[in-house]
Amino acid sequence: MPSLSSSLNLGDLCILRLSALGDVCNLVPAVRALQKQQPGIKITWVIGRAEYNLLAGLEGVDFFIYDKKSGLAGMRALRKEIMDKRAGKPFDVLLHMQAALRASVLSRFIPAKRRIGFDAARAKDNQNWFVNEQINANPNVRVGQGFMDFVHYLGVAKTEPEWSIPVPEADQAVAKQLVAGLERYLVISPCSSFRKRNWRNWEDFVGWAEVIDYAQQAYGLTTVLVGGQTELEKNATAQIIKHSQSKILDLMGKTNLKALLAVIDGAELVIAPDSGPIHMAAARGKPALGLYATSNPARTGPWLDDYVVNRYPEAVAKYLKQPLETVAWGQRVRSPNAMGLITSQDVIEKLDLIAADLKLKKLSPKIPTRI
């Protein structure tokens, strides 16, 4: 279905995307593309609380925060907040950019004239019931491109992705103090957020240690571990440090999301599974060495995925018993063992590729053996 706009004069636009950290990172280029083509456009974004903490201060965007734990009462409160602030005026356009039932129910509490959702193939959980327009079909694209499809539908020209996520000076100062004394470092975020039956973590702690030791010995890179303070993360941190022979800076639970962006700014690269930090790295223009086996990096990988370790095809063959070309786009491999297909040698090979592109001098060719 073609756009109903004959020219780009979109008026007052609202985006609905609550989560997750990586996804909201991938949505920012669509916002920047809108702003670039229609300067002064009024953009409102309904977003989750943690995601807001990452994007707070985004130029030209007003945020409304919805707490997913607040249920229907929170949805009614959000509608009242929106209506009070806007004196009852509906948005000209609502971009419903989260194909999930909770988000779709929430969308009905947001007043809008045009309600635009994904095309039929991407409109999961019956999202099409909650919108009056759908974007054009564009099969088998990554998540970030899916968000760009919304603004292309509205008539925005194709453009290179831009982010410019602001980091306050106070958070920059915190990050600078935390990494003080490190000449060159890489960031590792070993754990993704917990989701039921969605195994994305590489739990080969000896393998992590081998990568860390190799980075130190071969390129003089100190590893900085980042993440939260869940029991899963505490255990991963303890195991990685136990098996490594290198100096490691443990920043687990010591940064907020803005300070983490600043820590990433000073890093040579970021290594992580399919999670927020890998997309935050791409947003900061840093090499993102993503580790993928249970999800397809062609769909969920960072914008520039030249360095991704991709064991998804092998995982599909081994655990789904199907050829890659026969599985649905975005199909997850629901096996806790799939990430074990990744080896430390896989990661080291990509690290060498990044180091060559960054023109890092190699100090030692030795690859550490298992401890």
Rank of each mutant, 00 (worst) to 15 (best):
G220I: 05
G340I: 15
F63M: 09
K254S: 12
G57R: 06
G71L: 04
L94I: 01
L360Q: 01
D119Y: 10
Y312T: 15
N53T: 03
G228V: 05
S295K: 02
M148L: 14
L16R: 00
A328L: 13
A338P: 10
N201E: 13
L154S: 08
S344N: 11
E233N: 09
P297N: 14
N53H: 12
P368T: 09
W199I: 10
E183H: 08
L257E: 12
S344E: 09
F194H: 13
R184L: 01
V174G: 01
R334G: 00
L251Y: 08
K366N: 03
T222S: 13
G155D: 10
V156H: 00
M148W: 04
A20E: 09
A298E: 15
S6E: 13
L304T: 10
G340P: 06
M280A: 10
L58H: 06
E160Q: 14
D119R: 01
P302D: 06
D305H: 11
E169A: 15
I212T: 08
Y307S: 06
D250F: 04
S244I: 00
E51H: 00
P190R: 04
L106C: 04
Q322S: 15
G220D: 07
P111N: 06
R86A: 05
D23R: 02
F147R: 05
P139T: 12
S107M: 01
A170I: 14
T44R: 08
S275P: 01
A170T: 15
V46S: 02
G144S: 13
W208M: 03
M1K: 02
D149Q: 12
E349C: 11
V131L: 00
A218D: 04
I82G: 07
A170P: 09
Y153C: 01
P297R: 12
Q217E: 05
L249T: 11
G146T: 08
L10Y: 03
K89T: 15
A56D: 08
A103D: 02
N128G: 11
S275I: 05
A281H: 07
N296M: 10
L10T: 03
A170W: 05
A238C: 05
Y52G: 06
L8C: 09
K124P: 02
I367L: 10
Q37M: 09
G228C: 09
Q216R: 13
K362D: 01
L186W: 08
I348P: 04
V327R: 12
I241P: 04
T294Y: 13
